[in-house]
Amino acid sequence: MFKFKTPSQETRKIMSKVALGKLTDTDFEEMCIEKIKKLTNCKEVKITSSGNNSIFIALSSVKGDIIIPDQGGWHGFKQIGKFLNKNIITLKTDSGLINPDHIEELDVEEGSALIYTSFAGYCAEQNTKSIAKFCKNNGILTIEDASAGIGDLENKLAKYSDIILGSTGSPKIINAGSGGFIAYNIPEVFKETPIPQKLSKASEIICSGICSELDNVGEKLELTLNATKYLKKHINNSLHQDKRGVNVIIPHDDAKSISWNLKKSLTTDKRGFITTCPNYNRVKQKAVSIEVKNLDYSCLEKEHLDKIIEEIEISNLQ
């Protein structure tokens, strides 16, 4: 049986101590802020109560249109944008991957913003440097949801966008059970959103958990990336096979029934790690997604990965 990812034992211990009032002399929120500043190269950071609240704060500051990818993003982008009465423009992608040339084709208002995830559908890393450079040259704000990209040891993700935000809920790379963050270098962002900020303040308990998880976030992300790379190497027809990612998406016309069978053979102690597409958060075509990012790090060893490969072969998914 596979294990679903949960906050580390050390993180749970620290959160428990804070809840019991045993670590009152430590400012965990400030410690989180300083650590995220270093990881994102941003001058300003806020810890929030959730990733969606971070998105709400970021989109509240946008004056023009909200540009979202046609797939491979997060459904909250559109939902929150509509709630804020923003005009939503959908950007054509290559199964979630953004091509700056397609941004150039859009007719957007001044003060518009592109919001996207570090990994398209969690499957393939975006060229964040190229996207950010193009958008900056064309007056478009970039907002990167780096829930799965923060801590990248190759420094390709969560470094270049104007606003970098994320969730720290389960089973994210920073796994404190709940919470989020927003980092930026543009002072106007928080000046325009005082009310959402007040409503989204995270507790000291959550801050202590985030602080603990940040200590080795780079190594945890690297373990996940390497496990996904190993699976992609042995699954010949996976989507974006040459790209780094934290899940494996395998297109198939009979994805629904195959996913059902895989869920029965690849069981977990809690929630599962097999999902079915089409799904805006992944890709719009029929496919099976192996959510490597959802697995406990003890399940990213070769014997567990080989078991996944074996079951995929048995299911005729390849």
Rank of each mutant, 00 (worst) to 15 (best):
F273L: 03
K232P: 00
S265P: 00
W260P: 00
L199S: 11
K232W: 00
L262K: 01
P278F: 11
A227C: 06
K243C: 04
C211D: 07
H234I: 05
K232E: 00
P187Y: 04
P187D: 12
Y184N: 08
V288R: 02
K286F: 13
K191I: 06
L266G: 06
A227H: 06
V248P: 05
A202Y: 05
R271W: 04
E188Y: 15
Y280A: 06
P194G: 04
D254E: 09
D215P: 00
Q285W: 00
Q241V: 01
S200C: 08
P251A: 13
D253N: 13
F181A: 06
F190S: 08
K191G: 11
K256P: 03
R244L: 10
K293I: 12
V217Q: 03
I210N: 09
E291L: 15
T276H: 12
V288S: 03
L262F: 03
K270I: 02
K286P: 09
D242I: 00
V217K: 01
K232N: 02
A202F: 01
Q241C: 03
K270T: 06
C207L: 05
V248M: 09
I274G: 03
Q197F: 06
S259Q: 02
T224G: 00
S289F: 02
E219Y: 11
I235L: 12
N185D: 12
L214F: 09
V288N: 06
I250D: 12
K243S: 04
I182T: 05
V283H: 09
K233T: 10
A227R: 04
T275K: 15
H252S: 14
N247P: 08
A202Q: 08
G218D: 14
V283I: 11
K198E: 14
I206V: 15
K293R: 15
L231H: 09
I186A: 12
L239T: 00
K220S: 15
K198S: 14
K286D: 14
T275N: 15
P278W: 08
T268Y: 04
K293W: 15
E219V: 14
S259E: 09
I186W: 13
R271Y: 07
I290K: 02
T268H: 05
F181L: 04
E222H: 11
K270S: 12
K201N: 15
N226D: 10
I182D: 05
T228D: 03
S289L: 03
K229G: 11
S257E: 15
I235H: 08
P196E: 05
T268W: 03
T268D: 10
A227P: 04
K191N: 14
